[in-house]
Amino acid sequence: MNGYPTVQSTKVGDRLPEMQKSANEAELFLYSAASFNPHRIHYDHAYARHEGHQDTVVHGPLQGSWLTQFVTDWAGPNARLLSVEWQNRASAFVDEEVQFSGTVVALDATEGVVELEIVGQKSDGTILMPAKASVRLAGR
């Protein structure tokens, strides 16, 4: 598993490679379609403004899937995601870049399980989603 973390290669304090994500209008539309979500704030700019949003809103669960990808891209295909949680503190809007960063905060060498603390934030530093995850890393 060249390149992917193992229990031996991982230590508390390790930082995950950062990941940038954003969704343009077409990508927001595709997510609405793939998740059968007709909520107008995700594709109708005027309606999103009418509801008090500054622009078309990125779906909270789409940000959740960005988060799981951030973890699974780092951990590799042989690792297993055991848990993930996040809070949606603020909304991301169409075309806005979201940066994910994370740190290993605990490591159980016997079980091969790491705990991660993660944050998704906008380029102006606004915290969108504080998050945690635990992963069982691939074998020795």
């Binding site: 994500k21 595709l30 793939a34 959740g64 899937s65 960005w66 799981t68 699974t72 295909p77």
Partner: peptide
């Protein structure tokens, strides 16, 4: 998977999924 921009081959390629320990193609967690 395409809609969230996660093109991990374990969601698309049975051989890769099986090499990673899955019975067959797996799906994005959420």
């Amino acid at each position: 998977a395409y809609a969230v921009g996660d093109e991990n081959p374990i969601y698309f390629d049975e051989k890769v999924a099986q090499a990673a320990g899955y019975r067959t193609i797996t799906v994005p967690p959420l």
